[in-house]
Amino acid sequence: MLNHSNHDIFDWNPSYCDAVWQEIIQLRTEASTRKFWRCRTVSETFVLMYSPPATEQNDRFIQFAEMFKRYEVPVPTIYEYDLDNGYFLLEDVGVEDFHTQYELRNVDHCVALAFSCLRNIQSINEPIIPPYERKRFVQELEVFRDNLCFSLIDVNTDVVQSYFEHIVEEISALPKVTVHRDYHCKNLLVRSEPPFLGVVDFQDALVGPITYDLASLLYDCYWDHEHATIEKQIEIFWSQGLAMQYREAITHQEFSVLLKLTALQRLLKAAGIFVRLWLERKQTTHLKYVLPTLRKAQDICEEIEAVRPLGLWLQREVIPVTLLAIRRQN
Rank of each mutant, 00 (worst) to 15 (best):
N6C: 07
H7R: 03
H7P: 10
W12R: 03
P14E: 13
Y16N: 13
Y16I: 11
C17H: 14
E23P: 06
L27Y: 02
T29G: 14
T33V: 05
T33Q: 15
R34W: 08
C39N: 07
F46K: 14
M49L: 08
Y50R: 03
P53I: 06
P53S: 05
E56Y: 04
E66F: 00
M67H: 09
F68W: 08
Y71M: 10
V73T: 01
E80R: 11
E80H: 13
D84G: 11
G86W: 11
Y87C: 10
H99T: 13
Q101E: 15
Q101R: 15
E103S: 15
H109D: 15
A114S: 14
Q122P: 01
S123N: 03
P127W: 02
P127R: 09
Y132N: 00
R136G: 00
Q139Y: 02
E140K: 09
V143Y: 01
N147R: 02
N147L: 00
V155F: 02
V159S: 06
S162D: 04
S162R: 09
F164T: 00
H166C: 09
V168H: 01
P175V: 14
V179S: 11
N187W: 02
V190I: 15
R191G: 11
R191S: 12
V200N: 06
D201R: 00
D204M: 05
A205D: 04
P209N: 08
D213P: 03
S216M: 02
D220K: 02
C221N: 13
E226M: 10
H227Q: 14
H227D: 14
I230E: 09
K232A: 07
Q233F: 14
I234M: 13
S239C: 07
L242P: 03
Q245W: 00
T251G: 13
S256T: 13
V257E: 05
A263V: 07
G272N: 12
Y289A: 11
K296D: 11
D299I: 06
E303Q: 09
V307R: 08
R308F: 09
G311P: 08
I319W: 08
L323K: 12
A325N: 09
I326P: 06
R327C: 10
N330L: 10
